[in-house]
Simulated scan of single mutants.
Amino acid sequence: MTRILEARSDEAMAIREAIALLARGLPVAIPTETVYGLAADATNPDAIARIYEMKGRPRFNPLICHMADLPMAERHVIFDPLSRRLAEVFWPGPMTLVLPVRETSPIHPLARAGLDTVGVRVPSGMAGRLLAALDRPLAAPSANTSGGISPTTAAHVAADLGKKLELVLDAGPARIGLESTILKVENGAIRLLRPGGLDVADVEALTGTLVVRPHGAGAAIEAPGMLASHYAPAAGVRLDATSVFPGEALIRFGGRSLPGEERAAIVLDLSPTGDLREAAANLFGYMKEADRSGAASIAFAPVPVHGLGEAINDRLRRAAAPRE
């Protein structure tokens, strides 16, 4: 069973223990501002293979590599001027940039699924300080079984991966609760590969250009979170519900009641006040709570698509997609 180490009281000790395991090629679950990540040395192929094995993740799905700061990232990837501007403004924070990998970078091809690009980001908080102390990149997808609901607390990680994992650093609930926004600059245009914790409107306001959204299904996998079915609970998922079937779990938004909710197995509200940031922070935790209710299906009331609602709706569509 995994050991959960409360890291807020003695962060330096927690970082030392994590580094000792990482040096042995063992993954460690770490807190970030987005979700909890399953981190391992991005230069060590055995360590990276353990991430894929623990998660049951397909190896064609690349991993995000986390950096301590922009100078560390520059040692591993090549920045165009627009990507550099985005990094200077939004790092540390919930933004990943997909960039060409340098020939001299020791990031192993397994971490980038053999691509000549790699997704990089600089996390804030304890994760950033761990990276600075380690002084090498960490591959760190979400610390959960592949395709399932991402973890926003240490307890979520332990409940899912506890029999496979030695250590979880506990820094409390993730502040943002959604994975990073993934962007790629091509020919001066910014492409959105995955909406996430950074509002795309902030990117557009900074650059004065519209971010290009994905068109249709079947796109090549260039970054995490692009699989059609992802973030899925065990229960079925029904979107844009206007009423509730008897025995369903209900996750609503904005304090609005739905007909039939008195017969629901459980009723949760992502944000009674209609705050999309609160809704994002609660999304994965509430999905797990609804799943634990034993309901065969989870009904989701509509969530606005603007701001962080774009990322919330992306996660819900993938959770509801047909599963292989």
Rank of each mutant, 00 (worst) to 15 (best):
L210Y: 04
H66P: 01
L316N: 03
L86Q: 03
L206R: 03
L258W: 11
L169F: 08
P106T: 08
E262D: 14
N187R: 14
L276Y: 13
I149E: 00
L178H: 00
L192Q: 13
D116Q: 02
V267M: 11
P141K: 04
D80G: 11
S229Q: 15
V98T: 06
A12T: 15
L210N: 01
I107H: 01
P27D: 13
T153L: 08
I221S: 11
V89F: 03
L210V: 12
D199S: 02
R213S: 14
P173H: 12
V244N: 07
S142Q: 08
G196C: 09
V120G: 03
T242R: 13
G218A: 14
V303C: 10
F245M: 11
A321T: 15
A264I: 01
L86F: 02
Y52N: 15
A49V: 02
S83Q: 01
L308R: 06
P27S: 06
E289G: 05
T104N: 00
A320T: 09
A127Q: 04
L99C: 01
S9T: 14
D269H: 06
A158K: 01
L258T: 05
S229I: 11
A223W: 08
G125Y: 12
P94D: 13
A296R: 08
R323D: 07
T43I: 04
A42E: 13
A73Y: 00
R292F: 07
R3M: 13
R315D: 07
G172C: 15
I149V: 14
V305P: 06
A320L: 12
S297A: 15
R252K: 15
D160L: 00
G56N: 09
I4G: 02
G196Y: 09
L5T: 06
G285Y: 02
G309M: 10
E6T: 06
R121L: 04
I266P: 02
A18T: 00
L22W: 07
I298V: 07
G260Q: 04
V89S: 03
V211R: 04
I221K: 05
R292T: 14
N44K: 03
A73V: 03
A87K: 03
I251A: 11
L131H: 02
A132W: 05
R3C: 11
N44E: 10
R16H: 12
E33H: 01
K184R: 15
P62K: 14
N313I: 08
L63T: 04
F60V: 09
G196S: 08
V89I: 13
I51P: 15
P302Q: 11
V89W: 05
H76W: 08
P214T: 12
A241C: 15
A155F: 04
L316G: 06
V211H: 06
F300A: 05
L110I: 06
R112Y: 04
